[in-house]
Design a protein around this nucleic acid. Structure first.
Length: 725
RNA sequence: GCACCCUUAGCUCAGACAGGUUAGAGCGUUCGAUUCACAUUCGAAAGGUCGGAAGUUCGAAUCUUCCAGGGUGCACCA
């Protein structure tokens, strides 16, 4: 009688993801194969193999896993597992981010709710102690959730944006950039958030549409418009376009006496092209201390700049009788006074305009002139390769030359557009949680030049923009500024995979930092994935109640189904619509694969070490698998993971299960023993290849089946070799 | 205002950069099968003037131009 295998005891039906996942996770963790050093030590990777590295975009240390993270983890783990199976020296570095502003404001809010204390009441040390306790406590949540996805990260290299090693990198980066003249301190107009009491960078501003009354005031012979009467106290310049024929009688520099809010003033006419002839009357007064564009006009003509509003939104002495009043309360009073003085021409109700807000959960931005630290993006300095250029130019060059490729390609245009509009980057923040400005520290203050000779450098209490340290992430995680083996081996990284929404915040800043500090790009490829939306294409949000929680999906349908749902149908850079039905569908697929394996193993003979004579018909089937392998590999190489996964899915289900196996049934039970043996061998071989091809996408179920194979070339599928076709 | 993307079956999307049989898939719908590795299954059917118009071409879902609708980024907002 023919020797028949039988499905092992553990091969129960249906496939039980949660049981398999905990078992398989343990196998992987114990193997240590996520660490490339272990792979080399155990002989599964050659010491001279080509390196392949990805640095995980660090999730917020106090956050929980959402579908965006899940998509990121799925995509990166696919690339990593594929590289590892291809024999590359593969490293995926995990980390978490402090998310300075968001974290501090959350902890402050909590403390205020419970204890009615502000951060000033607690003091800097106590607040930081509380924040650190909070981050430490919540850290394990996110880390465990990342592990649940099957992410083969090397946890021995875990990094946190505020740990000791990253602190050294940040200090070193700051000092080097300062010494090169790329970091300077200056009094500039910045985005001030009166609610969080800190500056924020241009990129963190979110414009929100708002309806307000638009006031037309009589300013001498002119009609000037504003939505913000409370800024008008200091206005002693009236600006118009030089080509505006309506005002040709007025000459640049001409003085006019006129009646204004708090009495008679002398106004000076300024001709400047920044005035838009088509807007309102074409005439405006300016408030240089509280408006970016006004500040520029004032700088061009060397005009006086007088602050009107303080950091808390309270009017200064220039406001006369209104001094000491908050702008919110003052506005109607000022309008009323202008009205009684007969200075209101008209009021347009319902004027729609954009208001700048702090996207990090802050308030409405009030531009202020403040002494802050900046990174000069247009200044030409010497780069490590000897060329003299600016950060802006270099950031453009490395993408234009293809040293770093952005996928999908149309984001390159968006990236250039952003660079063209980029202004000096304000990097100091007035919050306490974060890396402090090195000027404060002993040991560094020596290197930092004294701004004005003869004065001592005061201690700067500010911290650095979180994106300053994030910009160093690809190399600070690999040991920089030390010249470590990791740094030499794994930098530049192979690919940076992240959502397109942080292209500017982060991707561009990493290119900036790495270009100057490392003299090389931080990554060879940028792969931008889309946002995960609900089944109808809406953003997932609490208020809509349409949030699909990845952990719930993992518990209900398994991590494999969750992963592949986030990959299939997700072309690079396009938003992905995800529904629970879709995840359920791929759970069915995991079960299908499981049952294919049951069938094959119950009927199969081994494929290794047996000289078999294979029928021509079966050879054709094997050739078909070779074609599939080639196409899947090509698509992964092109970052078309969606197509790679989709074609494998269809091959396994429609071709392998529905056709090949069905056609095999009569052959296996037939009288032609040689044909049956040939087919058994073929089925086993197709299963074997299918498992390898699917492993990056569905690591748990494929590994669980792999563990049931009697003959295999590797104890774990995780480090089995990728089929070579 | 400037820029980028999208518009293909009821729904969600491939296909477009490299033009070439009868434009595909999943879900849904309808009909049927099933002592089978799998009812988390199998087979079949219905369903599309590829947003509109013009152009290039032997040939256009695909390339070009214009238009319409939707989305996004950036700037402005006195």
């Amino acid at each position: 009688m023919e020797k028949r295998g039988s499905a092992p005891e553990i091969f129960l039906k249906p496939f039980n993801p949660s049981e398999a996942e905990s078992h398989i996770s343990t196998l992987w963790e114990n193997s240590g194969y996520a660490n490339p050093d272990v792979c080399i030590e155990k002989g599964v990777t050659k010491p001279d193999a080509e390196p392949y590295s990805i640095v995980l975009p660090p999730p917020n240390v106090t956050g929980t896993l959402h579908m965006g993270h899940a998509a990121m983890l799925a995509i990166e783990d696919i690339l990593i597992r594929y590289a590892r199976m291809n024999g590359q020296k593969t490293l995926w570095v995990p980390g978490t981010d402090s998310a300075a502003i968001a974290t501090q404001s959350k902890v402050e809010t909590d403390i205020y709710k419970k204890e009615k204390k502000t951060r000033q009441d607690l003091g800097r040390d106590e607040l930081l102690k509380r924040i650190n306790a909070f981050t430490e406590e919540s850290k394990s949540t996110i880390v465990n959730q990342i592990k649940r996805m099957g992410s083969s990260l090397d946890w021995s290299r875990y990094a946190y944006t505020l740990d000791e090693a990253r602190y050294k990198a940040v200090m070193e980066a700051f000092v080097r950039m300062y010494d090169a003249g790329l970091i300077y301190r200056g009094d500039r107009i910045v985005n001030w958030d009166p609610k969080l009491q800190t500056t924020v960078s241009d990129d963190e501003i979110e414009y929100v549409e708002q309806k307000d009354p638009f006031y037309h005031f009589k300013y001498g012979p002119f009609d000037i418009g504003t939505v913000r009467p409370e800024t008008k106290f200091g206005d002693k310049y009236v600006v118009m376009h030089p080509n505006d024929t309506r005002y040709k009688e007025y000459k640049h520099g001409q003085k006019l006496q006129l009646e204004w809010i708090n009495g008679p003033i002398e106004a000076t006419v300024i001709k400047d092209e920044a005035a838009d002839m088509a807007f309102g009357s074409g005439v405006m007064t300016i408030t240089p201390a509280h408006s970016g564009i006004d500040f520029e006009i004032a700088s061009r003509h060397k005009l006086d700049i007088a602050p009107v509003i303080d950091e808390r939104g309270i009017l200064l002495s220039i406001a006369g009788e209104f001094a000491g009043t908050h702008i919110k309360k003052a506005r109607p009073l000022i309008v009323e006074k202008l009205r009684t003085k007969g200075l209101i021409a008209k009021i347009d109700e319902g004027y729609v305009h954009n208001v700048a807000t702090n996207s990090r959960g802050g308030g409405i931005i009030e531009p202020q002139i403040k002494r802050q630290w900046f990174v000069a993006v247009d200044k030409e300095v010497k780069f490590p390769d000897g060329t003299v250029t600016s950060l802006k130019k270099r950031m453009r060059e490395v993408v234009e030359s293809g040293e770093t490729k952005i996928l999908p390609a149309h984001f390159e245009k968006i990236y250039y557009h952003w660079i063209d509009n980029l202004r000096d980057w304000c990097i100091s923040r007035q919050i306490w949680f974060g890396h402090r400005i090195p000027a404060w520290f002993k040991g560094y203050e020596i290197k930092v030049q004294i701004e004005s000779p003869g004065t001592t450098w005061e201690q700067d209490p500010d911290t650095l923009d979180t994106w300053f340290s994030s910009g160093l992430w690809t190399f600070s995680t690999l040991g920089w500024p030390e010249q470590t083996e990791d740094l030499k081996t794994y930098h530049p990284t192979a690919v940076l995979e992240t959502g397109y929404d942080i292209l500017f915040f982060w991707v561009a800043r990493m290119i900036l930092m790495s270009s100057f500090l490392m003299g090389e790009v931080p990554f060879k490829n940028v792969y931008l994935h889309g946002l995960v939306r609900d089944g109808q294409g809406r953003k997932m949000s609490k208020s809509l109640g349409n949030i699909i929680d990845p952990l719930t999906m993992i518990e209900k349908y398994g991590a494999d189904a969750t992963r592949i749902s986030l990959v299939i149908g997700a072309a690079p850079g396009t938003d992905l619509k995800l529904s629970e039905d879709k995840v359920r569908g791929y759970k069915h697929f995991a079960n299908k694969l499981w049952n294919i394996a049951r069938f094959v193993l119950e009927n199969s003979s081994e494929i290794y070490g047996h000289a078999m004579s294979i029928n021509p018909e079966d050879k054709k089937l094997l050739a078909e698998v070779d074609v599939l392998t080639k196409q899947v590999s090509d698509n992964i190489n092109k970052f078309r993971l969606d197509l790679a996964a989709d074609m494998t899915y269809h091959f396994v289900w429609d071709r392998f299960a529905s056709e090949i196996i069905e056609q095999s049934k009569p052959i296996l039970s037939g009288t032609d023993k040689a044909a049956a043996d040939s087919r058994r061998h073929t089925l086993y071989s197709i299963l074997d290849t299918s498992l390898r091809l699917l492993h990056p996408f569905m690591p748990f179920v494929t590994e669980a089946i792999w563990q049931q194979l009697s003959e295999k070339d590797s104890d774990l599928l995780m480090v089995a070799h990728w089929p070579n076709k």
